[in-house]
Amino acid sequence: MAFGFWQSTLGKKIVMGVTGLIMIGYLCAHLLGNMKIFFGPGEFNAYGHWLRVMGAPVLHHEWGLWIARIVLLAAVILHAVSAYQLSRRDIKARPQKYVHTKPRMSYATRTMRWGGVILGLFIVWHILDLTTGTTHSGGFQEGHPYQNVVDTFSTWYGNVIYIVAMLAMGMHVRHGFWSAAQTLGAGNHTRDRALKAIANALAIVLTAGFISIPVGVMTGVVS
């Protein structure tokens, strides 16, 4: 059964939808946490510390954080693997293009694959930049996330990478949220307007919210 599920195009698509929704859920929580940056280094760094003691005293130091990391890593991998396998299949199923072509689908729909690749690369860079500090500009300080964020957004390329990725994320979420509703069988005529409105709202709030941070650093609101 589990094997048959994964073998089916519908099963893979359902995996993609569920993992996509998990990631959207995470993005909402991540954005709420990040907004603390506008209340100063004390509050933001305390929040960073709380992430490590989350779930205490039931959970040991950093266990909550690691559980979240493992779930997210599994989600990203499953999502990317099913996206890759389904995309290969789709391209094979339509090898010959029409001579007479016209642009049809919305921009968000057409950019799901390349947008997804941009997001995948961004996730790797983002972790190397602000979690491990491997590619961080200037001295990365463990336990001082506020300063690290300010450093990243004090470089032009930090801002460019981040803002481009957030625009791609917004579009991916816009088509992705609505698609996931269809994939999981939740859409219909009566609900469609509401689902589209939620998809647009999620896309706009997540994009604008995340972009407000580099803009905050650039304008000196966060420093």
Binding site: Q7, S8, T9, L10, K12, K13, L86, R89, D90, I91, K92, A93, R94, R104, M105, T109, M112, H175, W178, S179, Q182, T183
Partner: peptide
């Protein structure tokens, strides 16, 4: 699936 049709990307 066995016939080699592609999957749905909700393009409409």
């Amino acid at each position: 699936d066995a016939e080699g049709f592609g999957g749905c990307t909700l393009a409409g």
